[in-house]
């Protein structure tokens, strides 16, 4: 039998892994204790299991909703449409929300795209840089009349997300009156938190992320008074959503 070129051999092996096309069997040595078919299957099973486990770990809620067989189908279709071109298996997950949006999965289960986006955000949140603990002693040194010049900073793990779906509820439905749900995803002491927050809190947090100082935030926020805003800040510091501050004064 003529030898395959190195390139064709690897192409056929790749085809086998992806589709089960068994042309490659012709160039595998047949020896005991197991057959050529079984030898190749070891690699195909390992490949499928690795991809499946990685996606299941990154999208646990989607797995829970679809259950094993349908999740398997989703994984199979996804890896064909978006084959991994990454050196990290973790990065392979990143296109699943787009795939769901483009495919029947997103059409049949309408909230699935947003749920996938949120689950991917949780993965990214997990990988974000650790922050230092909020320096209360330093902020106490800022003269009280200057405290409005303080610029609060969000933790590097904080990611915002909006959706018309009640993704935080057990039974995911469109929210009442099609209002938008505002989510904040953040990491605190290694735990990923997803909170559905009020629009007014969202607006304040957005202003913080834009780099406005406390005085500017109070000035532009009309729904809370100064005391209420302070309470929000304090709460967010406790949760680790605000992780540090900047003060340019003397």
């Amino acid at each position: 039998m003529k030898n395959l070129s190195f390139k064709i051999l690897q192409q056929q092996f790749a085809d086998y892994l992806k589709t089960g096309a068994n042309e490659i069997e012709n160039v595998i040595l047949d020896q005991l204790p197991i057959s050529v078919f079984e030898r190749l299957l070891i690699y195909r099973i390992a490949y499928n299991q690795r991809i499946y486990s990685s996606l299941k770990e990154d999208f646990p809620k989607i797995y829970e909703i679809l259950k094993e067989d349908n999740f398997n189908k989703l994984v199979e279709e996804y890896r064909i449409k978006y084959p991994s071109t990454y050196w990290s298996l973790g990065e392979f997950s990143k296109n699943l929300p787009d795939f769901i949006a483009e495919s029947n999965w997103g059409k049949e289960i309408k909230y699935m795209e947003d749920l996938a986006k949120l689950e991917w955000i949780k993965c990214l949140c997990f990988l974000a840089k650790n922050s230092d603990y909020f320096n209360f002693s330093s902020i106490a040194l800022v003269p009280s009349e200057k405290q409005n010049e303080i610029i609060l900073k969000l933790d590097s793990s904080v990611i915002f997300f909006e959706s018309p779906w009640d993704l935080h509820k057990k039974n995911i439905k469109k929210s009442i009156s099609n209002k938008i749900n505002y989510y904040i995803v953040y990491r605190n002491n290694g735990i990923i938190n997803v909170e559905c927050i009020l629009k007014k809190d969202w607006n304040i947090l957005q202003k913080i992320s834009q780099g406005l100082n406390i005085g500017e935030i109070i000035e532009k926020t009309h729904v809370y008074n100064e005391k209420q805003i302070s309470k929000c800040f304090s709460n967010w510091v406790k949760k680790g959503i605000i992780s540090h501050f900047i003060y340019y004064g003397e």
Binding site: N3, L9, F13, A14, L17, Y47, R50, S84
Partner: peptide
């Protein structure tokens, strides 16, 4: 070993034929 071809990564350690051509490569 090899883990992928034509820019696709299979995230596995796949076997090689042990030939002079592969050795050189």
């Amino acid at each position: 070993s090899w883990s992928g071809v034509f820019n696709e990564n299979f995230h596995d350690l796949l076997p090689l034929p042990y030939t002079e051509e592969v050795l050189e490569h």
